[in-house]
Structures are given as structure tokens and as C-alpha cells.
Design a binder for these strands. Structure first.
Lengths: 296, 296
DNA sequence: GTCAGCGATAAAATCTGCTCATGGCAACGC
DNA sequence: GCGTTGCCATGAGCAGATTTTATCGCTGAC
């Protein structure tokens, strides 16, 4: 197989019209160049250059080969350029993994800021319904960076984003909607049919766990497949919903109350042990822009 | 700069998903491959692969670089393919030099046959008005093969095609047109105004030379720039013309006579000393197909 | 806890690329 | 015609690059 060095020699000989001038331009001696041209001709199986007394000339085979030599060199040069640009955060593709609520809450402003700062870097987002799935995907190398609940026993860098507060959503005409303190006791919702979450969604586990701690098991009026549907269904009267506060849209047509006891979880951006520059830059931006506002 | 070998290693690791399997596939040991991957990463300035416990994973930089690595390898492979095909006469480009009359007479059937036999090989034709220009171009390396009058003192291979006969063209109503022997004595045309050739056209020299040998200097009624125009102008009555017999079109509307004394020149296909396979194949075909019919 | 899977590292062996020296051929100038 | 210059080819030797062999360290599975 031809080497890129040999191809570089060929192209330079053709462009300069002589072995001697090509050797000068490439800062090697003429015999080195002569020898490599011979080796290349042996590798491709025939003469590429005709040596005339005062010049060189491409053979038909040489003429056929030359554009491909140029293209290979161009691609090799381009990969260096692309690598440099990726290192300089000007180009590349990041794989981000997040749980559903993060995609709805924290990520939009983060991605907006990222696009402004690094317009040449693409983001590929994968969403996971459950923190355990997120963690497993990250451990298996399916993403460069994960954003979600703090993973227990994780060995790579973890950057905390703050505490994600949960809210109870009720229709505005619910008897409990007008609480003067803006809070609602979870125990008062023990007999309600809830807007629950589909199995496998981490919020289903969380709701069950929270209710168990208060002493009840929430009956499901409906199991929302999409996290973002929960507040809408609750406002429509299907039942209370426990949702991350920051996913409730602005100008929301429903009652948003703080649960008592409070329901919280800490969110973090985390990577595996030795993240590359682009991944680090993104995680930094998430920490800077993606802080969690407890009650939006 | 990255080497093609390193790029091949990278692509194979990514495609097989492991260093060990890639090393097997490439018939090298795993440490060699490991070391070269490190070298490549040093060359491009950052990590391309993330080493996970049971797998490897591309970094963002690796993902950016990979398509260019593939492309460089593809171009290098393509140049080998193209070289092989050129050697096998399946592909390539030949540069043919010929004098004007050859382009009109011998070459059309030759090129037709060539295209049938080697449809993938392109021909680039350069025409010269004068045998000396043809020879000079050939010596200077401006073509792979030349077709024209035999060059004196040429050191490369010369393949003779036969003798090109000249004819005198007159209008059909010329008093000399009805010669019972089909011949005309050049001396009888001494006082005529001739369809001559433009200066620089080898046929101008030839006509002057032939006339001088018979004892006259041809006055020019017109100097044809295009060799192929001469018989047409003669048939139209502008004056006699001396033309290669084989460039007179079939069903020609004029009188075509053999001059006395006969005018001839030997044609040949010739190359420089060590022609490549494609050039040899073409010259062989010219010899086989391009024989000169004295009165075709 | 043991073993298998897997990549990294070091030292030794082998290969490759380059330099220096020289030769051969052609063109040019005197 | 002779000497000089221009230019590529070839051979020998050397240094650096690549590969192999041996071994280590880490992780996951049983």
C-alpha cells in the first residue's frame, strides 16, 4: 500500500516538474525522493512518471492515479483540521443523555447558550425515562455526558446543578387549590386518583416512594407516557400530579402547589473518568446556565 | 502527519469494536496497534477513542475525524484500483499526437477500433500542421505516441504504417481531368494557380519541394488553413491541389488523379524509448488497423 | 476469590526512511 | 569536440519507526 508520504512526493514532483526541486521543497534529499518514487511505482504495479532529460512527465497510469493521490492527501489534511477545530471547541458532535424532565426544564436554555457560544458543535440528545437507565447508558458509553439525578457510587466527575423541586398540580377549582400558604399536604391527597406515570418512568417510582413515606399508595387515574403531559392532565381535572416544578409551562392554566413534606432531588451533570475537552466545556456550561430554580 | 496505516488501524478498531479483534483482523499484535493509536492521537492532538472496560468508544474528536480517515483510505484504495485498471488497459488516458492529414485519414478507424476494444481508456488528440512540430512535441514529452512522417534519427521505437500516396485534385471539367491513365504530369500544371497550404503546414513545404523538383514554383491562388479544405477548394475550381489520397472523401465531386512523378511519404507511429503498456497497446493497434491504402 | 477479557507499557527485534557518496546520461556553451 | 552543468538512479550505512514478545493492571463475570 502506498504511504501518504509517497503520495506527497508524487504530487510535489508533478507540481514542481522535477525531482530535485520537489526534494528541496520537501526538505529531503533527491535520492530519498527518487527511492520513494520507485517504491510507490512498485506498489501500484507500474511507472507513474516518465523521466525525460530535463523534466518529468506523467504516464497514463500516473495521470489516472494523480487525482486520487491528491484526494487522499486532502482528506488526511482535513482530518487534522477537523481534529484541531474539535479541540478548539469549534466543531464536533457531543452526545448528551438526560432524563425526560431535564429535557423539558434545564436543557433548552443550556442548548440555546451552547449554540450561541459554539455554533459549529452539534448536539445529539438521548432521553431516558428513568435515572437508572440514564446511569446505565452513561456507564456503557452511550453518551459523553449525562444530566439527571445524582448517581450513587459514580466514580467519574459529578457536577451538581442544584435541587429540583417538585410541585403538586391541581385544577384551579379544586378545594385545595386556594391554599393561603401555597402548599398542600400530601396526606390530604391520599384518597385521590392520581395522574401517575407509565411503568419505567422514574417519576412513577418517585411518586410511589413519596406516597409510601406519607402512608398511602396512589391509585392511578391515568398513567402518562410523556412527562410533559402530567401537569396538563392534572389541570384538566384527571387528578393531582407530582411534577418537577421547572417543567410547568409559564402562564399555566392550573394550580401549582408546594407539597408537604417537600419533594426534592438533586440533579447533576456527570461524565466518565477522563472526559475530553468538548465534553468538559459542555458540562461547565450546564453548571453555569443550567442551575435549578426551585420555584421558577 | 497521520499515516494511512494508523488510519486503517483506527477504522478497524471502530468497526470491530475492540483493539484485540482489530489486531487479529489486520494480522498485527495488539501492542503494535495500541502504540500506533497513541501515536495517531498524539499527531492529531487529542484522544480519538475512549477505552471502556469491555469496549472502545469514539470521542467527539474521534467522531469528527473518522469520516475523513475513511475517505483517505478509500482514495488510497481507489488509486491502486485505477493503477491496476490502467495496467490492464481498462482505464486511463492516452495522449496522441498526429499531423493533420493523419487525423483525417488513418486515425478515425483506429480510434473506432480502440474505443471498441478499450472503452474505458480515453484518448486525447493533439494535431500538428508539420512533421517537424510533431517530432519536437514528441521529443519534449507532450504526447505518449506520435503518428506522422518517419522522423529522421529518432531513437525510440518506430512502427511503419506504409506509404501515404498523394493525389492531384482538379475540377471534373478541367481539360486534364479526363486522363485515360488516371494520371497527370505535374509539369503540365506548372502555370496554374494552386490551392496551396498556409505557411507552417508541412504540405506547403512538400508541394514547393515537389514542384521545385519538376522545375516550377507554384503560385498560390489560395492558402488553405485546413488540410481538409484543399480537395474541396480544388474541386470547386480554385486550382489544382496536391493532397494525401486518403483524405479525399468518398463520393467526391472532383477529379482525383495520380501525379507523375508519384508523390509519397512513409508514415509511422513512434514513441520514446520505454513506452508504458497502454502506449504500446495503442501503437500496436495503429499498426494493425491504420495501414495506409495507396488509393483507398 | 478466581479467571477471563482487554488494553497499556517496556524491552528487544526488525523494518523503513533518509543521508551521503557516486555514477550515468543528456543538454548546453565555448 | 570537450568540459561543465543539470538531473535522476543506485548503493551503503545509520537513525528512527514499527512490530513482536513478555508482562502488568483493571474490570466484569461466575
Amino acid at each position: 500500500m502506498a504511504t501518504l508520504r509517497q503520495l506527497e512526493y508524487l504530487v510535489t514532483v508533478v507540481d514542481t516538474g522535477s525531482f530535485t526541486r520537489a526534494a528541496e521543497q520537501l526538505h529531503v534529499t533527491q535520492p530519498a525522493l527518487s527511492h520513494q518514487m520507485r517504491a510507490l511505482e512498485a506498489a501500484v504495479g507500474g511507472p507513474l512518471l516518465e523521466r525525460l532529460p530535463r523534466s518529468v512527465r506523467l504516464t497514463p497510469m500516473g495521470r489516472a492515479v494523480l487525482p486520487h493521490a491528491r484526494a487522499a492527501l486532502a482528506e488526511a489534511e482535513r482530518l487534522h483540521t477537523v481534529a484541531r477545530r474539535t479541540a478548539g471547541l469549534e466543531e464536533g458532535e457531543l452526545e448528551v443523555a438526560a432524563i425526560y424532565s431535564v429535557s423539558l426544564g434545564i436543557l433548552p436554555p443550556v442548548l440555546r447558550a451552547w449554540r450561541r457560544l459554539h455554533p459549529g458543535v452539534r448536539i445529539r440528545l438521548r432521553e431516558y425515562p428513568h435515572a437508572d437507565l440514564l446511569r446505565a447508558a452513561m456507564a456503557a458509553g452511550r453518551a459523553d455526558v449525562a444530566i439527571g439525578p445524582v448517581p450513587d457510587g459514580w466514580e467519574g466527575p459529578i457536577r451538581e446543578l442544584g435541587v429540583e423541586e417538585f410541585a403538586v398540580v391541581l385544577p384551579v377549582d379544586d378545594p385545595l387549590a386556594d391554599s393561603p400558604t401555597g402548599t398542600v399536604a400530601l396526606a390530604e391527597l391520599a384518597d385521590r386518583d392520581w395522574v401517575h406515570y407509565a411503568p419505567g418512568n422514574g417519576l412513577a417510582d418517585l411518586l410511589d416512594h413519596v406516597a409510601a413515606q406519607v402512608g398511602f399508595h396512589p391509585r392511578a387515574a391515568v398513567r402518562a407516557e410523556q412527562t410533559s403531559a402530567a401537569p396538563l392532565l392534572a389541570a384538566a381535572g384527571l387528578g393531582p400530579a407530582l411534577v418537577p416544578a421547572n417543567i410547568v409551562p409559564p402562564h399555566f392554566d392550573g394550580a401549582v402547589l408546594r407539597p408537604h413534606p417537600p419533594v426534592r432531588r438533586t440533579l447533576a451533570a456527570y461524565t466518565r473518568t477522563r472526559p475530553d475537552a468538548l465534553t468538559v466545556a459542555f458540562a461547565d456550561l450546564v453548571v453555569g446556565v443550567g442551575c435549578v430554580d426551585p420555584a421558577g
